[in-house]
Every structure is written in C-alpha cells, then in structure tokens.
Design a protein around this nucleic acid. Sequence first.
RNA 1: GGUGGGAUGGCAGAGCGGUUGAAUGCACCAGUCUUGAAAACUGGCAUAGGUUAAUAGCCUAUCUAGGGUUCGAAUCCCUAUCCCACCGCCA
Length: 425
Amino acid sequence: MLDPKLLRSELNTIAQSLKVKGFELNCDEFLSLEAQRKELQLEAEAIQQERNAYAKSMGKLIGQAKANGEDIEPLKARGEALKKDSADADAALALVQGQLDALLQGIPNIPDSSVPEGQDEEDNIEVRRWGTPKSFDFEVKDHVDLGANLGGLDFDTAAKITGSRFAKMSGSIARLHRALTQFMLNIHIEEHGYEEVYVPYIVNADSLFGTGQLPKFEEDLFKLDDERNYYLIPTAEVPVTNIHRNDIVDSLPIKYVSHTPCFRSEAGSSGRDTRGMIRQHQFEKVEMVQFVHPSESTQAHEDLTAQAESLLQKLNLPYRTVVLCGGDLGFSAAKTFDIEVWLPSQDTYREISSCSNFTDFQARRMKARFRNAEGKTEFLHTLNGSGLAVGRTLIAVLENYQQADGSIAIPEVLQPLMGGLTQIS
RNA sequence: GGUGGGAUGGCAGAGCGGUUGAAUGCACCAGUCUUGAAAACUGGCAUAGGUUAAUAGCCUAUCUAGGGUUCGAAUCCCUAUCCCACCGCCA
C-alpha cells in the first residue's frame, strides 16, 4: 500500500510514475473521496468529543438530579440523541473510508526510477550474462524425454494420482531434486548469512493481504474449502515475510531462508508450458527474504540477486539476469531482477529466480516497523528472491548435463549430497 | 472431541460500570548527587489516525479481535482467535 499522506501531497507525480507500470490512477475519484473523508471525519470526531464529554459529566448530573428529587430521564434522552448522531456520522464516514481503502489497496507499488519503460517481458533489459551455453555434438533431449528414459520422472502417474501439472519423481532423480534443495539451503546459511526458518504451508487471509496477493489476485491461489479462509501458500514469501507482521523489530537487517512447497492454480496460464515440469501446480522453492533499513534496500536487492546467481555459478549453469520493465513488474514490487537459466532443449533462457525489492509497500500493509535513530517507528523495507526454484533448477541440470547416451552427469558440488554418485544412468 | 482457566502498556501485574490511556513494580532515557560507577532522589517514557508549516498544540481511536447492552464499558453479554490445565482419542 502506498502512503496516503504522500498520495495527498504528490498525487500527480505518483500518477505519472504509475503509468510506467501501465496503471492509470483515477485522481479525480481519489480527490473527491479524500475531500468527503476529511469533512466526514472532522464531523464524526466533533460529535464523538461532545458525546464523551457529556457521558463524563453524567455521573455528577445524575447525582444532583437524584438529590433534588428530579427525573433523570431527560438527562438520558440527550445522551441517546448524541449516541444516534454519532452512529449516523460514523456510518457516513465508514462508507467513504471503505471506498477510499478499496481504491488505495488496489494501487500498485511505485516503480523505482531505474525501472525501464516497457509493455511486457519483451521489453525487459538484460543487465548481465554468465557462462556460455554448451554446444552438444548430439541431438539434445528435453527433461521430459531424459527423465522418461531414466525412469525417474513420470507425469502420467502424477496425472492419475491427481491431474495435470503435477510430477512424480523417483530414484536418483528424486534424490537429485532433494540434493539441490540441501545445496541451496546450505550455501545461504553458511555463506550468505541467512537464518533457516520452517513455516506453515497454509496461511490465513491477513497474511496474503500483507504481501499483496489479496484482495486482487485470489484466482491464482488454492483456497481450502472450509470457513476459516485458509489458503495454500503460492510462495514462501507469504509465511516468511508475515513473520514480522504487526512487529516493531529490534534490529535490522533480518535475513531468512526457507524451503517450502508452493501451490499455484495457474488459472491465467492454461495452454502455456503444458509439457514437462516448467509450470506446475506444486513445486519446491528455496526462498530468501530480507527485512532491511529503507536506506539499505537498493544495495540489499543487488546482494540478494547476486546470492541467487552464485548458486548457478557453482552449478556451472549459464544464465542471464534481466531487469523487469514497468509493464512486467508485479503489483507489490518497486523493482525486480529475473534470473534466467539456459535450457538447451528450448534454445533459450528461462526464468529460474525472481528477486524483488518491495520497499515499504508490503511493510505498510503488514505494519512491519523498526525504531529509527530518533526512536520513532518507521516502516522497514522487504525484499525476497528465489534461491532458487528447485524444480526448474532440476530441469536445467538434467538438460545441461545430459550425455550422448541419455545419462546425466552430476554437478561436482552436488556429488557429496548424492552419496558420491557422479552420474545418473 | 469434552471440561475448566486465561489474554491489560517493553516485561510483570492491579483494576471488574462513571476525570482509567489505564495504579504499582521492573526495564529504559534524562537530570541531581559522585573523581567515576552503583545506590538514592527528581522528571520523562505507548501506538495509530486526523488537524496543522510543525516530529508544537488540540481532537479521535486503541486494555486479543469483531459484534452487543448502556447516557457512559478495560470492567456486563455474545462470537471468533490464541494460550494454559485436566480428561478422551490419535499420528
């Protein structure tokens, strides 16, 4: 959520910035609602003040009336009238405030000034490239064929158990998948200074509001069918960032890493990436989440992205990093770097990590604060990034490390986690 | 699943219908004293919203959350959530 005060004072500047994101802010509606709010709030508070003062004086008034043998009903009648006026004023205010809140909650975060203009992913700008795609002297297979030949990757059985967009892994491929998870967690804990956290995979609506998935993007989520309004997490970002909802934290930065499954309905992407495990309803991710001082978030964003990249370097997987253009930027993000890994079968780079700076947008929704140098509470900045998406990393390893005979060489850094195994055949 | 008991400021802990945003203690900050420290003493010390040039005043809200009763609710009633204890069941 944006700062309402900032919106009042710099409406036009903000509206201009939001255009980079392809969002048209209805300034007239905002100004009109804001004017109504101001008037109604002043009125409601004035009536409340009068009502409080009267109620406070009643103790004495009743005492006097009784001493004089007077009827106290007229005294009560005035109180009742004030109560009704107050309720009416509150209702009028609540109506306008509700509309204003809805408007406010639907406004995306302001893009950082360094975000390039553009409509969609075609306009994202490459900022760096690492490694050289390997040239194969044989016809490369994709991960689906490789996995089927090795007998460790099976989509038909998963479809029988559940339906489309699920995978069943077995044997060494299942183990490789687990080894990747361990590898990523270990590096972040040992080399990047993150604390590992284990969190619920089911969250309430407040948490989803805090990180920005609700109310606008409910269709992307799996919702549990009971009265509690619980949802399966679409990313660890939701439970991990919400660790500090309603908190005033003691010190910054705070860096958490968590391994969780992620569940996405993929409602808006039917027909896209239907083959293989690129786009699944259930996948695993190691996620980095940081809470930082506002002055540190730009640097933290660079660091976090570099930390995700370092995993691909250790795995010796070629990748490139792009900065998302305004039109491709998510609702809550001020700036996002996507890391794209090379997939030989597709002869292109595909997203394997998304690293975002949310500035104070999520923190304001969550009321996550710290005490600044003056001892005043201030909203902190939140960031997160995949480090990495495990399923897609598995795909990249299978495809980039495939041999002419269909076997898979195991990257050196993973061999200790695979019991010394050097290849899967 | 059942039966009880809880939830009050950073923490502990009073209050149980009328100057209570909330006693008291601890912690914390400033000052006095001291060579310095401790002790003692004095003062300060919540969050959010509004108004405003103002982080000055003033107003409003907040005693887990949401409803209700009342002229008036931290205090009474209802619901939810969480915690604790015991019983039952169970991985």
